[in-house]
Lab assay of single mutants.
Amino acid sequence: MADQLTEEQIAEFKEAFSLFDKDGDGTITTKELGTVMRSLGQNPTEAELQDMINEVDADGNGTIDFPEFLTMMARKMKDTDSEEEIREAFRVFDKDGNGYISAAELRHVMTNLGEKLTDEEVDEMIREADIDGDGQVNYEEFVQMMTAK
């Protein structure tokens, strides 16, 4: 299944994987998964984290390695993001709930994920998604960005 991913997608997933893999040992533990999910405003229980890991832990060693992570991402993409997942993601970014993602809100979430971005990089990300040019990202623009192939 992971063989249907483009090189660009694999590179993006590698970057995402390293955000989860806090200690850089090449595997994601339940603790690391929990840290990232909490930084995104989720509050999973230990059991939920274990279930999430077990779902993709092909070799049964209790952690997720990069090939397992790729399989999980490929699977998720095949079920292409349901509207509800996209709306949920939008809410994570839209901290003040005004229906727009500002540069400050984007920077806040990315920083929580451990991504240190310059102001230019954040502005560039907003510009790429900002179709109507108002300097922020509304829900429609967010959907376009998330579903762009």
Rank of each mutant, 00 (worst) to 15 (best):
R91T: 06
G135S: 14
M77R: 13
A11F: 07
L40T: 03
Q144M: 01
S18V: 09
I64C: 13
E141Q: 02
M77I: 12
S39C: 10
A104M: 12
M52V: 11
M146F: 15
E88V: 11
F66A: 15
M72S: 01
R107K: 14
V122Y: 05
L106E: 06
E84P: 04
Q136Y: 02
S82M: 07
F66L: 13
A16L: 11
V122P: 00
G97Y: 00
T111I: 12
A89I: 10
D25P: 05
D57S: 04
E8H: 08
D25T: 07
D96W: 06
A58F: 04
D81Y: 07
V109N: 01
A104S: 11
I10H: 06
N138M: 08
A58G: 07
R38I: 01
A16P: 03
G34Q: 03
A103S: 11
E115Q: 07
E128N: 00
A16W: 11
I86D: 14
I28P: 00
E68A: 15
M146C: 07
K14N: 09
G97M: 14
D57C: 06
N112M: 07
N61V: 13
Q42F: 10
G99P: 00
L49E: 15
I28F: 14
F93E: 06
D23F: 01
G133S: 02
E128V: 14
D132R: 03
I131C: 07
K14G: 00
A16F: 06
K78D: 07
I101E: 04
E141N: 01
F17D: 05
S39L: 14
N61Y: 09
E55N: 08
G99M: 05
E7Y: 05
G114D: 02
N138I: 13
T111A: 12
D130R: 02
E55V: 13
M146H: 07
F142W: 04
Q4Y: 10
G60V: 03
E105V: 14
K22L: 04
I28N: 11
G62S: 12
R75Q: 07
I28W: 04
F17K: 15
R91W: 03
G26V: 11
G26M: 09
M73E: 08
M73T: 14
A89G: 00
M145L: 06
I86L: 15
F66G: 01
V36N: 00
K78F: 00
F66Q: 05
G41L: 06
I10C: 15
R38Q: 06
G34S: 15
G24W: 09
D79Q: 07
F13A: 06
A89C: 04
M37P: 02
D3R: 15
M73W: 09
M72F: 14
V56W: 05
K149S: 07
T80G: 11
D96T: 14
F93P: 02
D51G: 11
G135H: 05
E124M: 03
E105Q: 00
G60R: 09
E85S: 00
Q42C: 04
G24N: 04
E7F: 12
F17V: 10
F20L: 12
E85H: 04
P44E: 05
V137C: 13
D96P: 06
A47M: 15
T6I: 13
E15C: 04
E7W: 15
A58M: 03
A104L: 05
E115D: 10
R107W: 04
G62H: 14
L40F: 02
E84R: 11
E83M: 07
T29A: 12
Q136S: 04
L40Y: 01
S102W: 15
I64Y: 13
M73N: 15
S18D: 13
D65N: 14
Q144I: 08
D65Y: 14
F69A: 04
D79L: 09
E12G: 11
G99F: 05
K76A: 14
G24H: 06
T45W: 07
D123A: 09
V143L: 12
A148H: 07
G97R: 14
V56T: 04
S102A: 05
M1E: 06
E48L: 08
G41S: 11
M125N: 00
R127K: 10
S18A: 12
E140I: 11
L70A: 07
M110Q: 03
K116A: 00
D96H: 05
D3W: 05
E68L: 00
M145K: 09
E55C: 03
N138H: 11
N112K: 07
E7S: 02
D25Q: 06
R75V: 00
M77K: 07
Q42V: 01
P67D: 07
T6F: 05
D96I: 02
G97T: 10
M145D: 09
M145P: 09
K78Y: 10
E88T: 05
N112D: 14
E12L: 02
N112H: 08
R127W: 09
V56F: 03
D130H: 07
P44M: 01
E140M: 13
A47G: 11
D21W: 13
I126M: 14
E55D: 11
E12N: 09
D25M: 07
V109Q: 04
E121S: 00
M37G: 00
L70W: 12
S39D: 01
E12P: 04
D94H: 10
R75K: 12
H108T: 09
M52T: 13
T27D: 06
F20E: 03
G62M: 09
K76H: 10
L5E: 08
E105R: 05
L106R: 00
E48P: 00
Y139T: 04
Q9R: 12
L33N: 00
T35F: 10
M77G: 10
A47Y: 03
I131V: 12
A89M: 08
N61Q: 05
E105D: 12
R91I: 03
T6R: 02
E88I: 09
F142C: 02
D130M: 04
Q42Y: 07
K22G: 02
L19G: 04
M52G: 14
Y139R: 02
N43V: 08
N138E: 14
G97I: 05
G34R: 13
E55M: 10
E88A: 08
E105L: 07
I86M: 00
D132H: 01
L40K: 13
N54V: 04
D3Y: 06
K116G: 15
T29W: 02
Q136V: 04
G133A: 10
D94Y: 07
N112I: 11
I101F: 14
A89D: 00
Q50T: 05
T29R: 04
A47F: 02
F69L: 11
L117P: 09
M37Y: 07
L19P: 11
G60C: 13
K95T: 04
E68S: 08
V109D: 01
T111N: 00
A47V: 11
T35Y: 01
A58L: 01
D123F: 11
R38N: 00
E121P: 03
A103V: 09
T118R: 09
E15V: 09
A129N: 02
D96R: 02
F20M: 06
K76P: 15
G97D: 12
K116L: 14
K31C: 00
F17C: 00
F69D: 06
E121D: 12
F69Q: 04
A89P: 00
K116W: 15
M125H: 04
D57L: 02
F69G: 00
Q50D: 04
I10P: 15
